[in-house]
């Protein structure tokens, strides 16, 4: 083996080993058994609802928290539903106003929606409300989130939030 090729081989091995460490995610810290409250500066509670729902940063934070608190686990990454009802359509079982959605998240609902009021700070719940509203295309377009935290899967159009017109007859479902 020439010096040059052994150097190359050595480099490749080093890179491979580093890569291994890179890929081998460490989870040495014991995993939390309840959702952690994130330490962050909360905005004043008197902030009007509009400050959250018309705020691109809130919506994008809500998108992140939607994954973090496992909302996505039941309602799916883009709100199509699964264990929980879909959030992309025009049906709102417990009301679709920002205040009603907020209450649903805070208190939970009897048929399976857990209460998150004791585990999530209020401003984050408002951010989640903003993101939930965005799923059914109910926010101004300029505050909509960008690329979602979901698989592109080689078909980006499927995962961009398709705009669906919100039907006038809210509350009914075909």
């Amino acid at each position: 083996m020439t010096g040059r090729s052994s150097l190359l081989a050595g480099l490749a091995l080093a890179l491979a080993l580093t890569a291994c460490r890179r890929e081998e995610r460490r989870f040495s810290e014991p995993q939390v058994l309840v959702a952690r409250r994130e330490r962050a500066v909360a905005p004043p509670s008197s902030e009007p609802v509009a400050a959250f729902v018309d705020n691109a940063w809130s919506v994008s934070e809500g998108q992140r928290l939607f994954g973090w608190y496992n909302c996505a686990g039941c309602h799916s990454l883009a709100g199509g539903g699964g264990m929980g009802p879909p959030l992309r359509d025009a049906t709102w079982i417990y009301g679709g106003s920002p205040e009603e959605i907020h209450r649903t998240i805070v208190e939970g609902r009897p048929n399976g929606m857990p209460e998150f009021g004791s585990r999530v700070p209020d401003y984050q719940i408002w951010q989640l409300v903003a993101y939930v509203l965005s799923l059914s295309g109910r926010l101004r377009q300029d505050v909509e989130p960008g690329r979602p935290e979901a698989i592109a899967l080689g078909q980006p159009p499927a995962m961009t939030y398709e705009k669906k017109p919100v039907p006038a007859n809210k509350g009914t479902h075909p």
Binding site: S76, L77, A78, G79, G80, G81, G82, P85, P86, R88, D89, T91, A150, I151, L153, A158, M159, E162, K164, H173
Partner: peptide, 20 residues
């Protein structure tokens, strides 16, 4: 088949753990 009784929204392909 949960898409039918639960009226899931198939415009999200990852719904129902990807079955949607």
């Amino acid at each position: 088949g949960v898409i039918v009784p639960a009226k899931l929204d198939a415009s999200d392909p990852t719904g129902a753990l990807g079955f949607l």
